[in-house]
Design a protein around this nucleic acid. Sequence first.
RNA 1: GCCCUGGUGGCGGAAUUGGUAGACGCGCAGGACUUAAAAUCCUGUUUGCCGUAAGGCGAGUACGGGUUCAAUUCCCGUCUGGGGCACCA
Length: 973
Amino acid sequence: MEYNFTDIEKKAKDKWAKEEVYKVSNDSDKPKCYILDMFPYPSGAGLHVGHPLGYIASDIYARYKRLCGYNVLHPMGFDAFGLPAEQYAIETGQHPAVTTEKNIARYREQLDNIGFCYDWSRAVRTSDPSYYKWTQWIFLQLFHSWYDRKANKAKPIKELVAIFEKEGNGNIPSPGNDALRFDSVQWKDYSEKEQRDILMQYRLAYQGYAQVWWCEALGTVLANDEVVNGVSERGGHPVERKNMRQWFLRITEFADRLLTSLDILEWSEAMKEMQRNWIGKSNGAEVKFDLSSGEVSLTVFTTRPDTIFGVDFMVLAPEHELVDSITTPEQNKAIQDYKTYVKSRSERERMSEVKQVTGCFTGAYAIHPFTQKQVPVWISEYVLAGYGTGAIMGVPSGDERDHAFAKHFNISITNIFGSRYTGEEAYSSKTDIIENSDFLSGLSIPDATEAAINKLEDLDAGKRKVNFRLRDAGFSRQRYWGEPFPIIYVDDIPYGNDEPIIHNNHDLGKLPVELPHVDSYSPGPEGQGPLANIQDWVETEAGERETNTMPGYAGSSWYFLRYMDPHNDNEFASRKAIDYWNQVDLYIGGTEHAVGHLLYSRMWTKALCDLGYIGFDEPFKKLLNQGMIQGQSYFAKHITATNKNGVSHNFFISYQNSEKETINWNGENYTIKKNIPFSNFRIRYAHLFVDTKDRITRKSLKEIFEIEHVNPKNIEDNLMDFIWDGITEDGEQYIQCKLEVEKMSKSKYNVVNPDDIVAQYGADTFRMYEMFLGPLDASKPWDTKGIEGVHRFLKKMWRLYADEQTGWIVNNEPATDAELRILHKTLRKISEDIERFSFNTSVSQFMIAVNELSTLGCHKRAILEPLAIAICPFAPHMAEELWQQLGPDSYRDGSVTQSTFPQYEERYVTESAKMYPVAVNGKTRIEMEFPLDAEPATIEKEVLADETIQKWLEGKTPKKFIYVKGKMINVVV
RNA sequence: GCCCUGGUGGCGGAAUUGGUAGACGCGCAGGACUUAAAAUCCUGUUUGCCGUAAGGCGAGUACGGGUUCAAUUCCCGUCUGGGGCACCA
């Protein structure tokens, strides 16, 4: 009876489906455990072998926890709104709902193939109206909330209105407009529009302005992704930055809490560090510089107020609101030209360009608050409008970029660091003494910082300020395939559709606001989204609908809550279910979500917690990052060569042979053209055809062309251009390729589909091989060749239970000590490894156990039954079959997936003696065995008496004797 | 450019807390079984030198330094691969 994985896996899957073994109840006496995978976006390309890596890991952990007696919630769903589906719709005319449905069905099929233990009855998809109903509802809660800085929590906006009616906003400055001041009388006198405009400056979901990529030719707004090398990806049209009215989430109000509560999370330090850097808290000061023209002043933010006497110029962001008004007539043309240039530049380019300094003088001068010195005011792209105040003070002797700027524009540099500033580069040490700085001279940097801020505050020329790099999150997209906003404009004032003015007398209050069908995905007028084209939908009895849609991260910011109670039509999830499942205990996903999704969902969780809907303010207690599985691509060289008549021809040639001078082709000599860049030629799908020496034979390349449906007549022509410069042992012509490891992607022709692997080797082999490739968090290349080893291991394990000829061979003989030792060592290692998510070493341990049990010829139930359960998290299908066969009459009630993980017993594992490596001066010379409870003195005596050790001591007296119990012995001479 | 992260045999990787570097697997080489193949099993496989052999000596975890009785592990510097950088998800 051989290991027939196809039958075994089908049988197990049918059983699990029939008995609904993965159905999870919200009512249980068992302790709960919530294990979650990051939401996949169902792309048209389907899953490749890299995607399931994290899913397999969480599946193993979930199955293990179930076997250990936990009630485990392990759901899966789809992040189904997004740009690629819309892009595809624009190209093919197919409705995103149709293609998304198709893609989800494909994903589901591929996932099922691998044998995950998801409770599919809880699946959600963000594009489902019954789901986005609640995304819209949460948006409305944010819209109707503000952030109380004193209480440090989000509160209903009604409470804020009550305060305004009583005392105005004297105690509650607006986060959106610091200068805004009014008292209760003024508030009551304001019109409805004025009041709503003010409230907008407090709401957690609010409207403001942001820059977007605008493409005039396409008449639409483009995502960063769609802008390549400064032009639109589609069509290559010019693009520029354009200011547009947008929805935002006021995540900046949560900045401090998002920062401090990182400390209690079990995330990798790297991940926390990335979030900390993203939030970017910095202490410093705001400094006010009056302009020499007198009317206005500039406010800058600086983290180095101690360097204020080193200020030689000021720089404003080109978008700064004062630029036009302060620019002198003589400089106006230059400034406008420069601003046009900056419009074409992405933020990334602006920040990363260090070699080429650009900027423009406004003609204005600012007055130094201490020295009254006049300093020129410039604009430059390296200052960003969104950070700090959008203006900086230039201190060239202490800041590299300021230094480069001053050098480039010949601005004279004030030295405040004495001899430590060389004149060649800025002196940016943060632990030093300030010089040449009036009352700050001689002070250390921290002291000078304090003194400078105090003086600024005395003079009313500045104040202490904490600044965050974090910016409010843009929440509008001028797109079709996303959640519509539950917002209606009445006389240009936005109202939530749950407000009386909207739903009184109108049937407009209900959620969800369904995404209407469209026939065309072309943009609306003036950069609006496609929804703006549907007049019938936009115009309502109450007013006009918002035509933007929400961004991709809206639905994924709260989906982990919906899984707890996915069919609830009255609430986003019942409080009982939320209290029971609570935080996600383990969250597995890629690092690419480090600062996007993971930050937004933390904010949403905090807001929902503050508003009293949930009882915890951090969504993901423990977070693990899986690495990427990369693809293998093979390259030949593409060269140009010329014959004696000057006729040139392009060839493909073995990678290393492109250095040759001449080649022979069709009986003629060709000279390889040097000094033209040799390009790499990607051989498509080569990973399926290369031999073990990275060679492609003429024969196998022909097969590739056949797969790619090249016209058979052309295959021979195509093969003509290859210079077959090698002959294999079997007499095949070949070309030597170069292997490169890169991202697995359809466009790189290097993807491996898990379906193919499962068909060939079975899901159990696939699961174990993915884990065996290496540590979960490491990136590593996929290599199908290595899977044989894992497959052989499963077959070998199978043979412990069944003989190919005689069938089941498990017996009831008592197990020997040696066999029990192997079993319990394995159980211990597996349990420990699973708890620390080291699945690759678990697989190794199973291999070791099976090798050893095979050598001992062990077919005993006492050993093999626990072993079958132990491998269940990894190879559940095989485990099910083995466990069933071990049952009383070859069929048990229930499933191995619901049995109990065997506990290891210490008594079978402990050893009494240890073979110690004995080293002299750190170099291991011999091994000696000692009992673990031996006296150190005895050991020392015996070691020093040993012949080999004596030889290495060369008669010298040992200086030191090091004995680490259970580890090693070292004699120092 | 900035932030995060990695670099160990021909390849994927192991070494869990500073304690025998290379477990386990692939590949490769040789062998057994077989008419043959598949499957399976056995042996060897970091590298240099010495030795017929058993074995012995030395080097070695990207590179250069340092701390330590002891460094793949800790510290400093350099090179280099990957991820992110706010509208891809």
